[in-house]
Design a protein around this nucleic acid. Structure first.
Lengths: 193, 193
DNA sequence: CTCATTTCTTGCCATTTGCCAAGTGTAAGC
DNA sequence: GCTTACACTTGGCAAATGGCAAGAAATGAG
């Protein structure tokens, strides 16, 4: 497992020389998570931020009635961690679970903090990385405001087709904000087109 | 107009001495925006980040059919700016408009960047501030996934009752992701209880 | 004050989605 | 093979919401 994807990811977030990107990448360690294992459990403080090299994860929490709500899916090149818990050092409100065997590159909070102080590019990367997450979330918020469930489903499987192959329908449904019954019907209509 | 609110806001985000908070507050300038004026127009790069001392603003964009979609409301002690445009230096996808006469404390991108480099607390505050915005957006996302429009409406007017007084119903409706017709009905039901 | 515009409400009906329950398919363990 | 979960689909009906249009109420300009 080499760090090419990680290095490229850094350069995508913040333009920098390959040498500098390699320097940042050195701070990350390889991790493995087997299917169904937890990267983070609700109530724990998220102490490592993982970039996914291979595999699919999901984060989820519970609604008032105790039903699982899938809050996000993570696949190749995405970052699987609870940013709020990680940066604010507070217990996470959600769990992160591997849906397939996964390989990741991760950094602990302590290491990250040390590098933030020592390496200006590191903190600049960190800030833009958070902003990117914020931007993605905002885009998803907009799609909740203006798109139908069917449109959101279409967008999801277009951008992340591998999710469709590996993820039970009920997880996708709660991510989209609908019931699995409705998604089943939507999917039926979808295939016709 | 004194900076007490601003100083308190800093200390809420990141525990620090009042002296240090005053030092950060010195970097902010007073601004005024009259009703209906724009703090930021879609397509422009957001060059100043405003903390609201008094008044109400809203941000909005357009959906595919060209209808306005209100993306957020901002009132006292909140931050009115497009964080993505501000930090990434890219054109904003949304406009920010004053719904009442407003007074703000603002800092320009250049000043902020300079202070980030010079004052560790400033960048630490900046990072946590972004994380807080991310956290709020995530919470709103969750409410879209699990709550009915009526519940979201109730939560909004409980947390920001002044919005109800100053904001046309159609803005609130598009913020909640429903039509103004539906909101009118929901409100009718709501008053009964 | 008057007129024009905007905002808000209401009725009617269609569409989407939820809820519950039954039934089918599929994979894992014994 | 049999059994037991679990995943998914389907039907029937209820609830939530949207689309359209008419009218009432509030607001703003002159």
């Amino acid at each position: 497992m080499n760090k090419d994807n990680l290095i490229q990811l850094f350069q995508n977030v913040l333009p920098m020389s390959t040498g500098k990107a390699e320097q940042l990448a050195e701070k990350f360690k390889a991790g493995k998570t087997v299917r169904n294992e937890y990267l983070l459990k609700e109530g724990a403080v998220c102490n490592a931020s993982h970039f996914i090299e291979e595999g699919i994860m999901r984060s989820y929490t519970y609604d008032i009635e105790g039903n699982e709500v899938t809050t996000s899916f993570y696949s190749k090149k995405m970052q699987g961690s609870d940013l709020v818990s990680f940066f604010k050092r507070i217990p996470s409100k959600e769990s992160i679970q591997a849906l397939t065997d996964c390989e990741t590159w991760y950094i602990t909070y302590g290491d990250m903090q040390a590098n933030f102080h020592a390496i200006p590019e590191f903190r600049e990367f960190g800030r833009l990385n958070i902003i990117n997450h914020y931007s993605i979330l905002k885009q998803r918020m907009l799609s909740m405001l203006q798109e139908t469930a069917e449109q959101r489903y279409g967008a999801l499987i277009n951008s992340n087709p591998e999710i469709l192959q590996n993820v039970p329908l009920k997880y996708i449904a709660s991510y989209l904000g609908i019931t699995d019954t409705s998604l089943s019907r939507i999917r039926k209509e979808f295939i016709k087109k």
